[in-house]
């Protein structure tokens, strides 16, 4: 049995993620505000929003069923469990076993599935359209992400997320993984080249349009799950280029990681400020390109370890 100390070390990154995730959304928004010449909302705005929403009551449309009420909870729960696998500490993760990466990827897919199902459940044509767009991009994003995970697994010869990113992976592979993961991050979190999180014109939205009917605590859960997802991808991206074990203690390690995550979020904000949305078929081409980068990382990993 692991003693309490190791357990605390393993759980610490997960707790950091759960507490700090809404903050990094604030970082992205402040970066965008800076580029637009505004002061922007407070860094902690999402915390206020979530607490406000949790105090409110929810309104459910008469045309919805239990699927719609269940979906936000399912999506939040599966995102948290994926985060538990992917929040890495120097020695392990909060939840870790051989092959846990496959479970984590499927957990993210389950969250998406629940959201899409609830969007279809409302019977609104707009939400159906959003769902259709979401599932159209999903297979490409998942392919890129999964091949990338596979590359890390081959390069480090381990099937668990905890040891996968800790091992010595060659530098070019790391950079390829980072770039590919960053593209997947932009698409999965509905960031600008793929989707605009600020637009409230239904014709152009992907993710926002699927949660139009949610209100109150449900919407709060959806916001929280979205911020956790951004945290998950950003922290993985940081793990790609910054190997674990640079500093001794878990506190220093996490401080470095959080600094890295904030840098990634600033990068997201910069990309969002200087780029326009892509035409829809170009988003798909971008994802195909990300899969190619992942495949290249995989091929190099196979070539180097062979």
């Amino acid at each position: 049995m692991a003693d309490t100390n190791t357990i605390a070390v393993d759980v610490f990154p997960l707790l950091c993620g759960l507490v700090l995730a809404p903050f990094i959304i604030g970082v992205v928004n402040r970066t965008k505000a800076f580029f637009a010449g505004r002061n922007g909302q407070p860094l902690l705005q999402l915390y206020f929003d979530i607490f406000k929403l949790l105090r409110k009551g929810a309104v459910f449309s008469r045309s919805t069923t239990w699927v719609f009420r269940l979906a936000p909870a399912v999506s939040l729960a599966s995102t948290v469990s994926a985060l538990a696998i992917f929040s890495l500490s120097p020695e392990g993760a909060a939840l870790s076993f051989p092959g846990d990466i496959v479970l984590a990827v499927y957990m993210l897919a389950l969250a998406r599935f629940a959201t899409v199902l609830s969007a279809l459940d409302t019977g609104s044509s707009f939400e159906g359209m959003g769902a259709s767009r979401e599932v159209m991009l999903a297979p490409f994003a998942e392919a890129a992400f999964f091949i990338l995970i596979l590359a890390a697994a081959v390069a480090s010869r381990s099937m668990s997320a905890a040891t996968m990113f800790a091992a010595a992976i060659p530098l070019p592979v790391r950079i390829l993984m980072f770039v590919s993961l960053f593209i997947v991050l932009l698409v999965e979190n509905c960031r600008v080249p793929a989707d605009d999180p600020n637009t409230h014109l239904e014709l152009t939205m992907i993710h926002e349009v699927m949660v139009l009917d949610n209100s109150g605590p449900d919407l709060g859960m959806i916001f929280y799950a979205a911020s956790l997802k951004l945290w998950l991808f950003a922290s993985l991206a940081v793990c790609c280029i910054m190997p674990a074990g640079l500093t001794g203690g878990i506190i220093g390690e996490m401080a470095l990681r959080v600094a890295g995550i904030i840098c990634v979020c600033i990068l997201v904000g910069v990309v969002e400020s200087v780029m326009a949305r892509f035409r829809f078929d170009k988003v798909r081409r971008m994802l195909v390109f990300a899969s190619v980068l992942s495949s290249l990382a995989l091929l190099i990993a196979v070539g180097v370890s062979a």
Binding site: P170, L171, P172, I175, L176, F289, V292, L293, L296, I300
Partner: peptide, 15 residues
Amino acid sequence: DWLQTVFVVMIVADF
């Protein structure tokens, strides 16, 4: 590492 990076950049440029 630099040599490898040059090769990788060549491949990415091809794509």
